[in-house]
Amino acid sequence: MKYEVITKEDFPSFVNGLLSEIEVVGVKMKEGKFHYDKIKSYDELCLDYDVTLIPPKKYLLPPKETLLKFSLGGAIQVEPSIDATPRVILGVHPYDIKAIELMDAVFSDSNPDANYMERRRNTVIVGVDCRNPSPNAFCPSMGTDTTETGFDLLLTDIGEQYVVAIGSEKGEELLKKHARTREATEADLAQRKAAQEEALAKYKLSIKAAVEEIPELLEKNYDHPLWEELAAKCLSCGSCTMVCPTCVCFDVQDDLELNLTAGERFRQWDSCMLQGFAKVATGENFREDCTSRLRHRYFRKGNYMLKRYGKLGCVGCGRCIGACLAEIANPVEAYNRLKEGS
């Protein structure tokens, strides 16, 4: 991997240079919380944040997305619809980069999803190492506090400068074009490592099992009473899935305009925690009770996705812990409980 260094003084002109040629979304502060949004200038950008409310997933798999447009007046006409606006996502934390890598695996697998793939191809990821993790985060337990892959550029704050890891040619070109940088020295890289270690020490939560143990830990505990205990308090509201960076399930519906001729087919985020998720038209519901839904979510994250895509479905961001209305969505507590009981 190649590393460059850019001073904090020079950094704004890099961002403004990007803004001159492409849409840039970055992290902004809003009422004490953080969220991704389009930025107009460097001044709006926040690079030192703990976690955003919603992951950058929303730019790759929008909450609601048109798949087809059709017209029903006379001969039926149907056109695919793909919005792949070129865009830089600036300031993505490593755990969210890992989640995007998982999404890439899901949507490129066997039947490539053109809507996702086109958008992904037109998206530049500029990551930033997290300096001040959220109190709910447990990234080190999942091996996602840092990353060597999945980004075009990755910044690490080393005081007056950023070390920039170069992850792709596209990233390197943008950096060359818009930033004044110098090659990183051994000393810079040592500082980068020290900064990452400093952040590592700030994480408050950890799982007592090694990440490799998780799939088997779940398999051994399919009938553990924990699932029923958690389900007894679960509201089946789907909040945990709405904030999850690796939840990719969707529903598909049609919508007709009032003229009854123009219409669209769209997909929108769905949640396996909602009661009707596995219900078929005849009324049969294959995951009717909350226990089976809650267990399914844990198994999907900690076992099924690994089997299918080679990557675990949890990146330790802790958003579900913060979003859960019943205060039960806590992978750390769940895995620790299973580990203690095993």
């Binding site: 899901v106 066997s110 399930c249 529903d251 598909v252 997909r267 769905d270 078929v280 076992n303 099924y304």
Partner: peptide, 24 residues
């Protein structure tokens, strides 16, 4: 087996039985 299927191509998640996609 019958399951709910929104996409038919292994993406939407509805037809999953444990780790198996019924549509795939």
């Amino acid at each position: 087996l019958e399951r709910r299927m929104k996409c038919g191509v292994g993406k939407c998640g509805h037809c999953q039985i444990n780790n198996v996609y019924v549509c795939q």
